[in-house]
Nucleic acid binder design. Sequence first.
RNA 1: GGCCCCAUCGUCUAGAGGCCUAGGACACCACCCUCUCAAGGUGGCGACACGGGUUCGAAUCCCGUUGGGGCUGCCA
Length: 503
Amino acid sequence: MTDTAPAPRARFAPSPTGYFHVGSARAALYNWLFVRRLGGTFILRIEDTDEARNRPEWTDGIISALDWLGMAPDEGPFFQSAAEGEHAAAIEALWDSGTLYACGCTREEIDERTKQRAAAGDPTPGYDGHCRDLGLPRGEGRALRFRTPDEGVVPVHDLVRGDVEFPQRALEDFICVKGNGKPLFVLANAVDDRTMAITHVIRGEDQLPTTPRQIMLWGALNAAEGRDLALPAYAHLPLLVNDRGKKLSKRRDPVAVEMYREQGYLPAAFRNYLALLGWSPGDEEIVPIDTIIQTFRLEDVQRSPAFFDIKKLSHINGVYIRALPVEEFVAAARPWVDPQPGEWAPGGWRDPDTGAPAVEPPPWPAERFDAGTFAAVAAVAQERVSVLGEVPELVDFLFLEDAPTDADSWQKAIAGDEVAPRILDDALAAYRTCPWDQDSLHEATLAIAEAVGRKLGKAQAPLRVAVMGRTRGLPLFDSLAVLGREETLRRLAAARSRLAPPD
RNA sequence: GGCCCCAUCGUCUAGAGGCCUAGGACACCACCCUCUCAAGGUGGCGACACGGGUUCGAAUCCCGUUGGGGCUGCCA
């Protein structure tokens, strides 16, 4: 450690208003990454003071999502609602120092005056300082505003953007305290950062315009409280956007981390992808978290917005899945294939609009699932999925009563193929006696193919559909070997009689 | 409207004045491998928004234009 700077304290301060947003997850990750290499502290602060929108289950969601991603906080969760005392004291100090004044203007009055000003040729929007020098006493229904300077600029030193300056004259006298005496976000946030000794504020770029207010508040608090706390360093991260370049929104875009988890993304893969949105480790993108921790620098963070690309996420997830030792893959896939997996199963997430789940539960009853059978095909399934939620469709033929049915596949490989009956018949005959292992089945089927003058790839299609239901899927002979002779013959015969009753 | 931010392949990015004929990854296309499908391999397509400067030299620095985005709540 040659670093002489004190260990940083960074906080992630989400508001529990819904499912955990991927943008929040990225912000949390960057806070966490920043702090890890420097031996600092990652703090979780739940900003739960919006009584109208906050619900306790969303708080649980934040905590378990962070946990799932391997980013459990070093300190916290702290709750903003528990800091009422500090907030009240700060308000008193600010009031006593004269930086705050009471204002009784309604939104309508303010808008009306703004309109009149605009008509008179003054484009300055927002509050006009109407009550600034009225000397109104505090009282129910009167908000408290911050008396902002009229001249000069507020400089924001941003670790990713450099220096940004906000002209004072564009900054209105903003409200710090609601008419009911409760602090507003801008104040509570600053006060909490002070009491928690936060050294770095790392958050989304959408917070940049509010930063000059917090800086002014910080200075006023220092003066009012007679303390000289150092302003935290700020870092505003580029926004995550959709394919139209708009900020990812809960309404239109799939943003719930819970949903991605239930679709079968691996936490390490998800985290790796998130790290790539706004930052790059170089030519190798899929890298261990330790490498990311060691090379991550806020100064290297991109300044332009990043598109959340599910295709790339899926690719990275596939790489992580394939890299798993097969036993770990079996364990990881369990919640998606076993109707009674134990601790955790997908299904908790529901689309807020449609009520649709992230994935369908496995279409077989718990008693038909067999862990050993699944393990027997796990290795070949593992190479064929990019998310765990795709596993059930690959192995369903093992746990369903009969072969799955797929109209297109049936039509293409059996009903629409005049050689299919003969292939089925030949297989029925050959499979009755051949040794039941992958190589023997391969050999026997090769012989059938040659007899009908087709390549193996073409000849196996009707058999695949008869037994496994679809034209695409796990390798046929591995699958038959695991399914067993008896059941294979049964399904072959069933397909044969469905095609045309034997004479 | 006001304030602020941003601008390299379709997407995520490398690039901190000469190493750039602009590199990698996803996606896409072709071929190879192959019992289907994947995976894998090889190759291909494909970008410095525009205009001025500064400089011997600019994707890199400055200015402007254009375009995009964010904020603009007694929400957080």
